[in-house]
């Protein structure tokens, strides 16, 4: 299993983009590429070639699940886990997101100090599965 380094974060809110970037880069030591929309994610994917995609569910225009669907259609994501970020969810909802192809779900608001650990855990689980 290669170490996780490149994470693509798709999120429309600039403040959350910044917080997540710092949380993942400064705390977790990852390299984060931030996309402000689903379309930008599609455009930037080949150049950045992320190892993991962190997707906000609710976004104007193309939402998280649609973005994931489009990415899957255009690129091979078999080795790239996608993680949804969404508000407090019920267990049944987590299952529905997983059915859409998400490796896991991170609940908003997230703890910035714990986020990197959470992502790393998901990365490990994905490769062990």
């Amino acid at each position: 299993m290669t170490a996780l380094q490149r994470i693509m974060h798709v999120e429309d809110d600039p403040s959350i983009q910044q917080v997540a970037k710092i949380a993942l880069e400064a705390v977790g030591g990852f390299t984060v590429h931030t996309c402000s929309s689903g379309q930008q994610a599609l455009d930037d994917y080949p150049a950045f070639a992320p190892q993991l995609i962190l997707l906000d569910v609710m976004m104007p225009g193309m939402d998280g699940p649609t973005t994931l669907q489009q990415l899957r259609q255009q690129f091979d994501l078999s080795k790239v886990p996608a993680v949804f970020m969404t508000a407090k969810v019920q267990s049944s909802e987590v299952e529905s997101y997983k059915a859409l192809g998400a490796a896991d779900v991170v609940v908003k608001p997230f703890d910035p100090m714990a986020l990197s650990g959470q992502i790393r855990q998901i990365w490990q689980d994905f490769h062990q599965a």
Binding site: D13, S15, I16, V19, A23, V27, P112, M113
Partner: peptide
């Protein structure tokens, strides 16, 4: 919720 997520994250950092 969105701004709160940002605030919470920023303060957390």
């Amino acid at each position: 919720r969105t701004p709160l997520t940002a605030i919470s994250g920023a303060i957390g950092l």
